[in-house]
Design a protein around this nucleic acid. Structure first.
Lengths: 344, 344
DNA sequence: CTGAAAGCGCTAACAA
DNA sequence: TTGTTAGCGCTTTCAG
């Protein structure tokens, strides 16, 4: 099937191309009769305009892109739908674009911006150092959502939405300590990670330190470099090895809910009962956590609020030019049944 | 930042635009010296070409798109990475494009094809009746992967990869029956679904019938229309209601692993032990199923093979024109610990 | 090896 | 209300 162009439609209808363009785009300055006739032909021949030509010509679109680094991350996945709803609510077109591991986010973002004449964009996931340096140069509004940064550069100087991983790691562990636990195992991500995992680890250490509990290397498990971190396997192997090592602990902090899933399994296989023999606390509060047995006590990241607030920040930028803003959410502790108070 | 164009680069380098184009695209017919000089400027000014212009001009690209209906489906999500690897292995560029619920897949596919001059596409997920009628008209190679069809039109007359849901539903239930179970509850998706859920249901009924077990409405739970089907909530509510109804059963077939997750929870809360008091079998074999306690016995859909084979089918089409082919995979029964033989 | 020029299919002035 | 036309930024002949 030879691709129909606007010219063909114009010819068939015996009108000029601009008239067809007006009809398709619902623009004023065209009689209802002509419009109807054209649309009929468009339908009949199943004409679909070429977006490349359109984008090329248009000065600006009405599209906001959600650029995702880590499309397989379940936490991010749970936000896609929310973003779409929220963005459409504000009258924008929504475009989800996945960034591969081998690609550079900023390059991808730039390409997409030029290609689609984006009105703005939201970067979800990944890690960036001093993102503002390259991103500001693009000259379009953007917001970072849950984009990690290294511990050295605490917060980028640009719109950013997320949680304070160090603080929430601290909160999770403090909670366990307040429940009477002192021997707290940690199932972490990669050892040489310098972002999320490092910060939650820092929170773990600070909580211990503040309660006068020494940090013990043997209670901490880092995942194998070639294993996907924050995954069930990560948790299974981690808990398994901790148990096998013979070190004793009464509670366990897992850096993600998916990790707890694997950890539950390892614990179960070892005959360690949760929470009786070992309390477990997770992180993220994904849907899954509610259905684990026993129900998982976890640090809930308010994903819906985070989405809403990302969009709101972007709206402000798209409207007028406000100064850069941060929005640091608090994770909420959801108490379920995986942690119990330890009796002396 | 005013957007740099190829003209600007040409001007800066004192060359023609075509020379710049040659440099960027690694084309022959340009001296290494000129090329190097141009690339230096490109780097320095951080020039990134406009893809819309490129796509508009180019006759064909090297891109194959994965068009996904149901981006939040965990089973599909587990295939994204595989598709990318496989497609790149064959030397193609990979593009993941999500279709919203409100959009029509074929329209989206057509737009994308025109916009990106796609070499081919793989449609993942969703449901289509007689897809070949509209898709063949596009004139580019395509493969359907795990695209549902209604029971009336068993198989589209086009390249299609997936499993036979009726058969595998039958296999799952037969397995339970062979294990001595006769009172088998079913936690299904929507009642008026006429695709996946309907077919697995048909398999359930056939298995019962072949073993002379009457179909009992009270053992079957359909999800509430406004609830996400195949979800943990679907399973939790389903199992909960089945238990509350007082009907007795010794085994349960859940139409997805995610459903079993919720069902486990409901069973646990009711004090029903798996598999001692009730055996459970799932469907899909997603990673999660391995980590449930007890390990979930489930019908494993060979997702990696399905991806490979989808790509292979597409490759054949892209190369020469072969006739349409089907590839129906068998789900594999993974036996873990959620089912036991029922003693009389 | 390089540059000028002709479009790709569309939108948006500008005329009519 | 319509049609004509000039590009959007790029690739690709075709001359030089």
């Amino acid at each position: 099937m030879a691709q129909l162009t606007i010219k063909d439609i114009a010819k068939i209808c015996n009108v000029g191309v601009s008239t067809v363009s007006r009809a398709i785009n619902n623009e004023p300055g065209i009689s209802d009769k002509t419009k109807e006739r054209i649309m009929q032909v468009v339908q009949e021949f199943n004409y679909i305009p070429n977006n490349s030509a359109r984008n090329l010509k248009m000065v600006e679109s009405n599209t906001i892109a959600l650029i995702v680094t880590g499309i397989d991350n379940v936490f991010f996945q749970s936000m896609f739908g929310e973003f779409e709803v929220e963005l459409r609510k504000h009258g924008f077109d929504y475009l989800l674009h996945a960034v591969s591991w081998q690609e550079d986010v900023v390059t991808v973002a730039t390409e997409l911006m030029k290609e689609k004449r984006l009105k703005g964009m939201i970067l979800l996931g990944g890690q960036m150092e001093r993102p503002e340096e390259r991103l500001d140069a693009l000259g379009i509004p953007y917001v970072l959502c849950t984009v990690a940064h290294s511990s050295e550069h605490p917060l980028p100087n640009c719109p950013w939405v997320g949680i304070d991983d160090e603080l929430e790691g601290y909160n999770a562990v403090s909670y366990l300590i307040n429940k009477g636990h002192r021997d707290i195992a940690l199932v972490a991500g990669q050892r040489y990670d310098n972002a999320v995992s490092a910060q939650r680890l820092a929170g773990y250490r600070r909580a211990l330190a503040e309660h006068g509990i020494p940090y013990r290397e043997e209670l901490v498990h880092f995942t194998d470099p070639q294993m996907t971190d924050f995954s069930p396997e990560n948790g299974y192997v981690g808990a398994k090895e901790l148990i096998a090592s013979g070190v004793s602990f009464t509670a366990m902090f897992c850096m993600s809910d998916l990790i707890t899933l694997g950890a539950y399994k390892a614990l179960d296989e070892a005959g360690v009962r949760v929470p009786k023999d070992c309390s477990v606390i997770g992180f993220d509060g994904i849907e899954l956590s509610k259905y684990m047995c026993p129900g998982l006590t976890t640090m809930y990241q308010p994903r819906v609020d985070m989405v809403k607030s990302s969009v709101e920040l972007l709206m402000k930028e798209v409207g007028a030019d406000n100064g850069p803003v941060h929005k640091i959410y608090e994770a909420t502790l959801i108490e379920r049944d995986s942690v119990i108070t330890r009796e002396e």
